[in-house]
């Protein structure tokens, strides 16, 4: 095969290989739905380009139409046409079945991991000095109260972590406390899972409401210990604004 059909096909394969296998080398893998969108765009572009003039239309679609109409075909051509004509309805039937068949997957849930905090917790500053004594006290409290779930290594892999859904936050991951301000952590520790708004699904969280058991001083010092132990720094207003 040569001509516009082959070029179009090569271009499509090239686009697919690029977004599916090459892009993930530099960024996160794309979701299947986005790959589909890009492939549709590429396909539509090729079709638009190929149907711009009568002659390009003929050279792009002519072979396809002659193949489908089956006139003057013999041997492999005839068999291939028959195979396409039989496989197409089967594919449609199979798609219909898989999209209707009952699944064991419960309906998907979109849980917001870092929802907006209540107004009274925005912009609070840690009233305790960031010094070694306070950090060490925070680390001790962390070991006693937080590490069973969040882990002695601040990685969310404590001995109690495995049973929870959602899993305890991994503070060593740059996507968690490094993205948040100290005031945000203060809210999350003080009010716990039950303090979350609806989009964060508070009914699933095992995070205790620590205000019931710990004074604010302990919570602020735990925050210090957490950042230091996880080798992260809090996001600050200065950087944001």
């Amino acid at each position: 095969m040569k001509g516009p059909i082959a070029s179009g096909a090569i271009l499509l394969v090239g686009v697919f290989v690029f977004i599916k296998y090459l892009l993930p080398l530099v960024t996160a893998p794309l979701p299947a739905s986005l790959i589909y969108l890009y492939m549709t765009l590429a396909f539509s572009g090729i079709m638009l380009y190929g149907t711009m003039s009568a002659s390009s239309l003929e050279s792009l679609m002519g072979p396809v139409f002659r193949f489908l109409s089956g006139e003057g075909q013999s041997g492999t051509g005839k068999m291939a046409r028959l195979a396409v004509l039989v496989l197409f309805p089967l594919l449609v039937g199979w798609q219909t079945y898989t999209s209707l068949a009952p699944s064991d997957l419960p309906p998907g849930e979109n849980r917001t991991i870092h929802p907006a905090p209540p107004g009274e917790f925005v912009g609070l500053a840690n009233p305790y000095q960031n010094n070694e004594a306070n950090i060490n006290m925070g680390k001790g409290l962390y070991a006693a109260y937080c590490s069973p779930c969040h882990g002695a290594n601040y990685d969310g892999k404590g001995p109690a972590a495995k049973g929870f859904n959602p899993p305890p936050a991994n503070f060593a991951d740059p996507g968690t406390i490094a993205q948040l301000q100290e005031s945000y952590l203060f809210w999350r520790i003080k009010k716990g899972g039950v303090g979350l708004p609806v989009e964060a699904m508070p009914w699933k969280s095992a995070m205790p409401r620590w205000e019931v058991e710990l004074p604010d001083e302990f919570i602020w010092k735990i925050i210090m210990g957490e950042y230091d132990g996880a080798h992260q720094s809090p996001r600050t207003w200065e950087e944001d604004d």
Binding site: A32, S33, Y36, M39, T40, S44, F88, L91, Q95
Partner: peptide, 9 residues
């Protein structure tokens, strides 16, 4: 597009 959509999407 419909076929591709239902298989990939």
């Amino acid at each position: 597009s419909g076929i591709l959509g239902s298989t990939v999407g």
